[in-house]
Design a protein around this nucleic acid. Sequence first.
DNA 1: AGAGTGGGCCTTTTT
DNA 2: GGCCCACTCT
Length: 666
Amino acid sequence: MTSREYILHPAHAPRDLHIDYRKELNEQQYAAVTAGDGPMLVIAGAGSGKTRTLTYRVAWLVEHGVEPGRILLLTFTNKAAREMLRRVEGLLPTDISSIWGGTFHHIGNRILRRHAKLIGYANDFTILDREDQKDLLDTCIADAKIDTREERFPKGDVLAEIYSLSLNTERIIERVLAEQYDYFAHLAEPINKLRVVYEQRKRDASVMDYDDLLVKTLELFRMHGDVVQRYREQFLHVLVDEYQDTNKIQADLIDAVAMLHRNLMVVGDDAQSIYSWRGADYRNILSFPERYPSARTFKIEVNYRSVPGVLALANDAIKGNVHQFAKTLTPVRTGGAKPWLVACADSNQQAQFVAQRMLELRDEGVALNDMAVLYRAHYHAMELQMELTKRNIPFVITSGLRFFEQAHIKDVACFLKVTTNPHDELSFQRIARLLSGVGAATAGKLWGEFHSVLVAGGKLPETNRAVPKKAVNDWKQCAATLNQLRALKPPLKAADMVELVIEGWYESYLKAKYPNARARLEDLHQLASFGQQFESVEEFLSQLALLTNLEADDASLISSSEQEFVRLSTVHQAKGQEWAAVFVIGLCDGMFPLSRALDGLEGEEEERRLFYVAVTRAKDELYLVYPLFRMTGGEAGGFQRPSRFVGELQKQHYQELALRYQSRTW
DNA sequence: AGAGTGGGCCTTTTT
DNA sequence: GGCCCACTCT
């Protein structure tokens, strides 16, 4: 162990520790947690206590005199950040709220709020979510007078994807098109031109999209040596979670900020890298030892989660991959059964089997909450959903249902955005389009009519010739609300503003538009109370944009019932989770691996990693289920072959059950 | 210019 | 089963 920390902070001797690290960690975890300075790569296998290692490392640093404010902890999701900080808090009596912990985007946002002026942005910029970005790009396409009929031109959402990939992987558009969108390769020139237009539009409206939060931070760092130097000095220790999912720009940001002290600990599992399709590059983790030649590598391979049978199958499943750090998970647990491989006649029988087995498991004492069904794509679970409904088995689907992305939440947020950022054309137009008889064209006209008034801080007229007849009444109330908001004296309180919007015109709009207006209104009141914890409206709005994926069970906003549910989830969304009993369904070739995902050399390896993630979610029981015949799916229907990943498994690792000829007699 | 209606299609998703 | 797109009517 080096002693550099002690030289920096001589007041702290490692004597009065609150945590008995030796006792609470296993040998491998202990080595990583208590390692000294310098770059470190921690390869943490599934279920090996990765989060534990990271949280104890943070605690260890703090206990050894590192000021919390000098620690930077980067994660991919808000959930992971919150979880980790909460756990560190529980370990120590120290106040650790000054730790810089959060997602890459959060940290970028935090830095840019301070220095945006240096790169030609106001500090009160607003953040576009994916939908806003798509809308703005659609507007750009329309304004550029591109004939989208003559020739197929990518829509806003596709363009967003292309630009995003280009930025996040630091490849030029031409290369992204060639490698991933070859059918648009001939459109490189207009796509590049449009990107410039889009950039300018964002600047004019003083808005940033998600990618900007990373790109502009890096740009700031590259252009302003004094700024980056300040953060380099500040962050004595940088820790990164899920490093296998970083993309190029994130890796660059990490490198930029960790360059001075070089106390960089990256934690991840290359075998669980499943996001390459959105720019993640697992080579970041594979090449870490070369990029940081002095880096030490720690492997954590003791698995606490699964019974040996499940683990043996998992180890076998990933063997087919060439590009990986070799590792073998060793079980702590004993006993348990071998996984089952279940052949069903078709998807209906597959659904019946899963439902039936779930009921049996419940009778055996397994809680519904401790069971999950995993699949490659949501539509693979259609029959299952019907079957569960038929049998009254309660289930929840982990899906894109996101609280803050619902229309009514975003509508109300736009009122606040326009108030704090009068340049925000997009938010203004969204409000305008809520008025009956106003579509994209009229909304643009109204912006032209009113934006100078907004920017000048004047009062919006309640009547104007540009307002169509149908919208006259709506506009009157809407403008009144906006004027009221704009007349508020600082300090602005987000909660009050939200209530004001509801009281104004929005409530009547909601009631007319949605059958479930009552529930949505309830959401809005909860949004208001959520806003109370924020000091400023800007901060509140940033959180809204960045917290899109608030999980139902940790959102205080969403009323949670005590009822138990079986969980249905894609494998992607199951990452990091565990259940006593796991069913992986649709395991036939073409569905899993999904044939569409197989183009490209690396496609199959990523699908195999996905399979590995799926099987390593199981604690006690694992069922690999596949239909032999598929009715749905057009030309992909018909007789199916079992997944190649199943075929690769040694038979000794599973027991077989064939249901095909004996329907309903298991 | 908007709103309403029927046909084809469907990977995965965080910020 | 549901969403998006294109087409048609007002």
